[in-house]
Amino acid sequence: MDGAGSEAASSAVEVTGLSKAFGARNVLHDINLAIPKGGFVSIVGRSGCGKSTLLRLLVGLDAPSSGRVDAGGAQARLVFQEPRLLPWASVGANVAVGLGRAPTASDAAVVQETLSLVGLADRAKAWPSTLSGGQRQRVALARALVSHPGFLALDEPFGALDALTRLDMQSLLETVWRRQGFTAVLVTHDVAEAVALGDRVVLIDDGRIALDVPVAVERPRMHGDPRLAAIEAQVLQRLFQA
């Protein structure tokens, strides 16, 4: 279904002995994680458990105190919790920011194609201020995807959206991921979301991996599948144990 070209662009992510300290405070201790090429890992945890720090280390925004992250040299992109669109640039121009260089005339087609991918083909000329919250986050997703990254990190990307829009965005993300075949890491505090989307759910507690459960449920997944509910219960139970 998906092209061999985009498959080849994704890469495995290998994390070994990763630690991060800010001054005297240790945020992450000895994290080991191997994500296969094209895999989807969800990371959950309480606020301040270090999950966002882990994400920043994965995409190379911060340097680890010790240990290493190997993303196989693939281009990494990050989707923030807020859309962070340039309000003075059109939707299309905002997506073009994701190219990582000054856009040329020939980029218009790939920008338009990426906007279609997120269902906003007709809004290329609109100002971000005229879009709804969900649409803005779609633009942010398109901006991250326009350069066909091999690795996509998402930091609570749907956290600010209402429940129904969230579900829409989750299925959009799954569709896009299946089509483009990048390696994905999703940080979320919504355990149901983590279980619905991930091949695996990793629970981080106090800077350590407390739980790492596979979600062996075929896609597309149905809402309310009892196997998903069982995994969600397992993760929640561990989360509240602490």
Partner: peptide, 8 residues
């Protein structure tokens, strides 16, 4: 920060 991450 976003712009820097995208290489500006």
């Amino acid at each position: 920060e976003m712009a820097r991450i995208y290489g500006m």
